[in-house]
Amino acid sequence: MGDLRLKPLLEPLLVAVLCGAVFTITGLTSGFGRALYVGGSGIVAPPELLTPSVRIAEVTVVLASAFVLAWKSPALRAAVCIAALALFSLHAAVFRTSFYLSRSDSVVLILMLGAIGVGGGVLLRMRERSRAALAVAAEERARRDERLDMARELHDVVAHHVTGILVQAQAALVVAEEDKSRAYDFLPGIVDGGTDALGAMRAMVRTLRDNGAATATSDLTADLHQLVEKSGLPVRTSIELTEDVRPELGRSVLRLVQEALTNTRKHAHDATNVEVDVRLTASAVLLSVVDNGTARPPHSGGFGLVGMRERVHELGGRFFAGATGDGWLVTAELPLEVRV
């Protein structure tokens, strides 16, 4: 708690010290009495103590401070601190003596240099805000694309079959009004349509988002082994799927593993070992992909991690991606049942 209270006071404290240093140099240059408006020249330091290199260092520190304040500090705090630096710098320009510039020229020079320093900091601040806004927009777009991808996948694989089922069911209702026994003739077609729909969902072979995305068949274990073989990475697999899972869930498992391996290939060039673990529990599918490559920041995976997190969230699961002591880990828990 003490650190949180001290941090907002640190910048004003440093600025106060810097302003005090500027005023001290002004007093040593022109006399403290004169600098404080009490008349007289006061005590003037020997010329060798205030060499051009000292003054250049002073100007550099003041301008650098104004630049950093305008760039990084909260707006109100930055304005107050920069105003204090400007006042003490202008005071120095008026009361110090110079063999090279008149007082008016010194004031103009300080204002110009200050405007350049503060302007540069403000430009960087605006640039960072713009980048942050673009990153947020891009992340939201990635989430929206992932939701759309999932919706289109489900629609494309079942829409045709469900339409056939509805047509046959409606026909059965019409026929049943005259002859109920004839309505039973439509039941095999409805059952076949449902079976075909389930088979189509298990055979999602198209991808609508990435041209090189993996395709899924009815055998998730075989699909995962095939994906690992094509990855070109030194992968060890442990896949324990004792029974079939929902088709859309199997598709998501495959996509998550593929994206995790893609991130490893892109960002962990020095990885010598990658482990893929997929197993089925009583209530969920658990998967993890871990490598021993150089750890990278959480955003290094670009928007792939955003899409992975969004897909897991839409399925009601839990997702984690981050650095470990020896590399990078991606884990997900996907529930077997749809959470409404």
Rank of each mutant, 00 (worst) to 15 (best):
E128T: 14
L123G: 09
A92S: 15
R77K: 09
P47L: 03
A57I: 01
S104I: 08
I56H: 08
A93N: 05
G20Q: 06
A35P: 02
L85K: 02
A64F: 13
L76S: 07
F88K: 02
G117I: 00
V68E: 03
L124A: 08
H91A: 07
W71I: 00
I25C: 09
D145K: 13
L124Q: 13
R131L: 11
F32W: 06
L134F: 06
S41R: 11
A75P: 00
L36V: 13
F99A: 15
V44I: 13
K72P: 00
R152Q: 15
R125K: 14
A84M: 14
L101T: 02
T51F: 00
R77I: 09
R127K: 12
L148E: 14
L18C: 05
A138G: 15
R125A: 09
R131K: 13
A78N: 12
R34L: 15
P47N: 07
I82N: 06
G117P: 03
V118S: 06
E48Q: 13
A93G: 02
G121A: 12
R127P: 01
E139R: 15
A57G: 02
R125C: 11
A35H: 01
R103H: 08
H91S: 07
G33T: 07
V108G: 00
I110S: 03
H91W: 14
L111I: 08
M150Y: 12
C81G: 10
G42V: 01
R96A: 11
V54R: 09
M112T: 14
M150F: 07
V108L: 15
C19G: 07
A57M: 03
F99L: 11
D149G: 08
L101I: 01
Y37T: 07
F67V: 01
A21R: 04
V22I: 11
S98G: 02
T24F: 11
R129Q: 09
R131H: 07
K72I: 11
L113Y: 12
A57H: 01
A132L: 12
F32S: 01
K72G: 10
Y100S: 06
T60C: 08
S53K: 11
Y100T: 10
G117C: 13
L134A: 13
S53Q: 15
L111W: 02
A93D: 07
I110M: 02
R127E: 10
A84N: 06
L63K: 02
V122I: 13
I110D: 02
T26F: 06
M126A: 15
S98T: 03
V122F: 06
L36M: 14
C19A: 14
A83F: 05
L101N: 00
G120D: 10
R103S: 13
A57W: 01
V44E: 06
V54Y: 05
R131V: 14
T29W: 02
E128N: 14
H91C: 00
E140V: 05
A64Y: 08
E153M: 13
G42S: 01
I110P: 00
A45Q: 04
F23Y: 05
R147H: 09
L76R: 11
S130K: 08
R144G: 00
I82L: 03
A83S: 10
L69D: 03
D145S: 12
E128P: 06
P46E: 14
R129I: 04
C19I: 00
A83W: 04
P52K: 11
R141F: 05
S73T: 09
E146P: 03
V68P: 01
A151C: 11
V118C: 10
L123W: 12
R125I: 07
